[in-house]
């Protein structure tokens, strides 16, 4: 097992002991990333509950933009497979969806099921000359018939209203909470007359997996803290970047067994990194290399295409420990310590 303590190579036991020592001494530890398989996210959640840490995930800005709108106004959503099978009009909102693998599939296929089956598919774009949430609001005003002065927006609104099955694709991190709410409002307005659904493109990270684990473990979304021995949900207080910047966090555990860039603030406080690939030994005080789920070890991951959790066997099994195993060993070490 590859592990480093303060930049120097260490054995597994030494690294686990050092990690436990950091966590035992901390007042307000923060666990960030959670870009891993379900078993590792569960182990991290249980360890956080054991020591009173808080949780945050890699893509939580986008996740919370979606959740905020969902909690307030609801959402009419669909899955990638449904869009490929049924949508005759697809609107790409903003820059981010254009690079999505789904768009290539949509370009290469035509609707094969439902009311639009056999017909062509039209892909449209909402370009943001003004900030994107403002452009969505203007489109919605045109779709409602309240404004008619922008011909481009009017054409988009007519295409969506005339669709058999419309779909709007967006990146919640790009659109923001207010913009997502406005877009969901547009979709709901369109459903007065035809079918239209929103599809949030959450990217390749494991935020959706973290969200599911958080929901079934604590009944809340991801940003939960266990400092008072009960799960408290507070998206502002438990924002990991804010906790680090304000100096409130005094230790961090970065869990990213899927490839992702570690945040710059990680090196600024006593920290532990559980990462795959070839880690930089200086990225944290304790660095432990773990197997990448779905590549080097097996694991349950968010499947973007199916919009669900599914097991992925290792493509090229490697003799690396799973992140969940390391987190379990850290928890066991803490249990054995008197000061934790």
């Amino acid at each position: 097992m590859a592990a480093w303590v303060k930049g120097g190579a260490a054995d597994a036991d030494g690294a686990v002991q050092a990690a436990a020592a950091i966590l035992a001494a901390a007042r307000t530890p923060v666990f960030a990333g959670l870009n891993a398989d379900v078993a590792a996210i569960r182990a991290a959640t249980h360890l956080a509950g054991r020591i009173g840490a808080s949780l945050d995930s890699l893509g939580s800005a986008g996740t919370y933009a979606d959740l905020g709108a969902l909690a307030r106004v609801g959402a009419m959503t669909t899955t990638p497979a449904e869009v490929v099978g049924r949508a005759d009009v697809v609107l790409l909102v903003g820059e981010a969806p254009r690079g999505a693998a789904l768009v290539e599939r949509l370009n290469a296929t035509a609707p094969s099921r439902g009311r639009a089956a056999g017909g062509p598919r039209t892909l449209l774009r909402l370009d943001a000359l003004s900030p994107l949430p403002i452009a969505v609001a203007a489109l919605r005003a045109h779709a409602r018939g309240h404004l008619a002065d922008d011909h481009g927006l009017l054409a988009l609104a007519k295409a969506l209203a005339g669709a058999q099955y419309g779909a709007v694709l967006y990146d919640p991190a790009e659109l923001g909470a207010a913009g997502v709410e406005m877009l969901q409002g547009l979709v709901m307005d369109l459903n007065e007359r035809t079918r239209c659904f929103a599809l949030s493109l959450s990217g390749a990270d494991q935020d959706r997996a973290a969200l599911q684990v958080a929901a079934w473990t604590t009944g809340q979304a991801i940003r939960v803290g266990f400092g008072r021995h009960v799960p408290e949900h507070d998206p502002w207080r438990f924002d990991a970047a804010r906790l680090a910047a304000s100096g409130e966090a005094d230790a961090a555990l970065w869990l990213s067994s899927r490839p992702a860039e570690a945040p710059a603030w990680l090196a600024g406080l006593p920290s532990i990194a559980l990462v795959s690939g070839e880690p930089d030994p200086g990225m944290a005080e304790v660095v432990i290399a773990v197997g990448e789920p779905g590549a080097e070890v097996g694991g349950v991951l968010w499947n973007e295409g199916r919009a669900g959790l599914s097991y992925r066997a290792p493509a090229a099994p490697a003799a690396r420990p799973a992140a969940a195993e390391i987190l379990g060993r850290i928890a066991a070490t803490l249990d054995a310590r008197k000061d934790a």
């Binding site: 009173g52 008072r228 021995h229």
Partner: peptide, 8 residues
Amino acid sequence: LPIGTSRR
């Protein structure tokens, strides 16, 4: 009266 928010 408890006012802290950490495990301390």
